[in-house]
């Protein structure tokens, strides 16, 4: 952890130094009536390539290209570097005049916003996942939910046999089946609200009045399962958002990469 922290400081220093150099170079070029956009543009292109390498690095997990944590940190810092250099390149112009440059700008802003959002998610959500106390692979969660549901339904059947009453079974069919069917309260979990827990407490407290002692034992077990499922829902929601944001970020990055190539071609054909 400490080495990652040191690496992060190193990356930031590198980015700040790089930005200072690029800015100074652009300033000097402009002072001498040169075209600073050439240096800043190719710097930006270089940063884009580096940012894209992060995706390649994830696919080439078998090759020792450095720890993923370092790459993630470097990717975030390089993204911030890219935003800064972008505005130096555009000379502070936020909204360009031509249609394809507007497309370029829109893609860049969306990539930047999604990148910042993703960075923020990756900074705060893992900690919340740790606090949840349940470590699980996201892809496996549906399997776990199915098992919990299976177990819950088993408990209900067993309770009906033992207590010779369908109170609990009816309660499950009318109320709990909805909850166990699939992950619930996704946005509530993502934003850190406790809707799931409140729902469980409210429903089980209400039900407790209508069950006898035998059924109450089963009801407690069902409540335990519901609490576990609620934590799984939390993991599913938070982990899901950690993956879903990439559905925006990566395709937008692909788009900007193509527009960048087009931009470079045009600049060379028409100006340089």
């Amino acid at each position: 952890m400490r080495s990652l922290h040191r690496a992060l400081i190193f990356f930031w220093l590198l980015a700040i130094g790089g930005f200072a150099f690029v800015s100074w170079n652009a300033w000097q070029t402009w002072l001498h009536n040169g075209e600073p956009a050439i240096v800043t543009g190719y710097t930006l292109a270089g940063i884009f390539v580096f940012l894209a390498l992060f995706n390649v690095r994830k696919r080439l997990a078998m090759i020792p290209l450095g720890r993923g944590a370092y790459w993630t940190a470097a990717h975030g810092v390089a993204g911030a570097f890219a935003i800064a250099v972008f505005f130096v390149h555009t000379n502070g112009v936020f909204w360009p005049d031509g249609a394809y440059e507007q497309l370029f700008a829109v893609l860049f802003y969306l990539v930047s916003i999604s990148g910042i959002l993703g960075y923020w998610l990756q900074r705060i959500l893992p900690k919340r996942l740790t606090d949840n106390g349940m470590e699980i692979i996201w892809e496996r969660i549906p399997h776990e939910l199915a098992e919990i549901r299976e177990k819950a339904e088993g408990l209900v059947e067993e309770a009906a046999d033992k207590a010779a009453s369908d109170t609990l079974a009816q309660y499950y069919v009318e109320t709990l089946a909805w909850f166990f069917r699939r992950p619930r309260f996704m946005f509530s979990h993502f934003f850190g609200a406790q809707s799931g827990r409140a729902w469980i407490r409210r429903e089980f407290t209400a039900m407790r009045r209508y069950v006898d002692e035998t059924e109450e034992g089963y009801l407690r077990q069902l409540e335990d399962l519901a609490q576990i499922k609620n934590r799984l829902d939390f993991a599913y929601s938070v982990n899901g958002f950690l993956k879903i944001w990439l559905l925006f970020h990566v395709p937008l990055a692909v788009g900007i990469f193509l527009v960048m190539i087009w931009h470079i071609i045009l600049v060379h054909v028409y100006l340089l």
């Binding site: 394809y100 497309l103 893609l107 990439l246 559905l247 990566v250 395709p251 937008l252 692909v254 788009g255 193509l258 527009v259 087009w262």
Partner: peptide
């Protein structure tokens, strides 16, 4: 993600 990326690439190339 891959599919959306291809769609985005097709969109950009088409627009250009």
């Amino acid at each position: 993600r891959q599919q959306i990326s291809w769609l985005m690439a097709a969109f950009v190339v088409s627009v250009i």
